Amino acid sequence: MLPTTSSLQIGELAAGQALTLPIYHFKPSGKHSGPKVYIQANVHGAEVQGNAVIYQLMKQLERCDILGEITLVPLANPLGINQKSGEFTLGRFDPITGVNWNREYLNHAIDLPTWYKEHAELSDSELIQAYRSTLVEACQRRLRNDWGVTTGHRLAVNLQAMAHEADIVLDLHTGPKSCKHLYCPEYDIASAQFFAIPYTLVIPNSFGGAMDEAAFCPWWQLSEVAKVMGRDLEIAVSAFTLELASQERICLEDALVDAKGILAYLSHRGVIAEQVEPAKMRRFGCYLKDYKKYHAPMAGLVEYVAPVGEPLAAGETLVNLLRLDLYGSEQELTALSLPQDCVPILHFASASVHQGTELYKVMTNLFELPH
């Protein structure tokens, strides 16, 4: 079954042209009412591999028995995608405000104890629907703000309003030069076993500005308030960020691997009728507090020695730093290392760096995830 298509206007260019997003919908067959899914890609301009994953996923879904509505939004940020300088895509930050495109989402300031008391007589399903409506209406109200909203915030809140309609939210990204890794909320760590991703960052149940947190945090907060009031309420929304290797790259073969990993999760959740087994692989995690950034202690030209996704022992060379201006001195070539065992996850894209540049992000204190 082919998806239906639609579009959404999320802004206007200075000359008046409409900015629109392509949207694809897979509807359940028959009267099925499985979980609703929202998947987006390419919020950051250079992070294009998620579009290939959505393509491969749709090809797979055409042959599936769909039990829950699936909404897919590739090319989710046309402004970022078109933010070019020469051969490079710069679309990580809104050029007008300088804000990260993935930090523009609305942090709902709902008085939850009061809201819960006003709706406490509802059944669980009625309560979930009422809260979902409250979140969507808050996004729509924000977009109607009498004082207006910034271009980036308008884009983000439009995306967020669609995501709030779903039970499962997947945000597809990549790193600069990166291995695959998953951002997973602490309460939902068991879900990491379904994706075809070897490394998982376990993030706290708090809002830091990204889409995954914007999607799951309101529901975790509601569950916590209900618990205080003596009610055991499930966390109704699952949300993850999938980092699908490196930016400025499309690989359809690799995209199929990740699409099948997403299918395994959707199968587990009852979104499709088919039984899709997760990839057999060892998976490791670390808590966000143990995800370390290494900044260049001096400027120079960098040879990135440590490959991403492979364990690195303390003291082993991470990078070689070349300083031609110091040729003939002891500092002409410096091997830099870390004081702790780790797994490098991503590194800076350029080989020329300022002092203080974030060279690597590494996972430390890893543990193996159940499978």
Results as ranks from 00 to 15, higher is better:
Y131R: 00
G50T: 00
E12P: 01
V99A: 08
G45H: 00
K280P: 07
Q160P: 12
V136A: 09
H354P: 05
R92P: 10
T114K: 06
L170G: 06
D290L: 06
I262E: 09
L263G: 11
R142M: 12
A296G: 01
V169F: 09
E332D: 14
S133Q: 15
A120V: 13
L112K: 00
S6K: 03
P278F: 04
N205D: 15
L155T: 00
H119C: 06
C179G: 13
G230C: 10
Q60A: 15
N77A: 05
I66Y: 03
I96L: 12
I345Y: 07
L369M: 15
Q129G: 05
E332N: 04
R63K: 14
H295F: 14
F194A: 04
G30T: 14
I262R: 04
C217P: 08
D290A: 10
C64T: 07
T200F: 02
I81E: 13
N100A: 00
R282H: 10
V308D: 08
P344L: 10
K293S: 15
Q160N: 06
E121R: 03
S125K: 10
L256W: 11
A161I: 02
P95F: 07
V149F: 11
L252K: 01
M229K: 13
H181G: 00
F207L: 03
L143S: 03
L112S: 03
I272H: 13
H354A: 15
N42F: 02
G285Y: 08
T4H: 07
N158H: 15
K177P: 07
A335W: 03
T174N: 05
V228P: 04
E47L: 05
F88W: 10
T114I: 06
L301C: 14
A306C: 02
R249S: 14
K117Y: 05
Q275A: 12
H164E: 14
M1H: 05
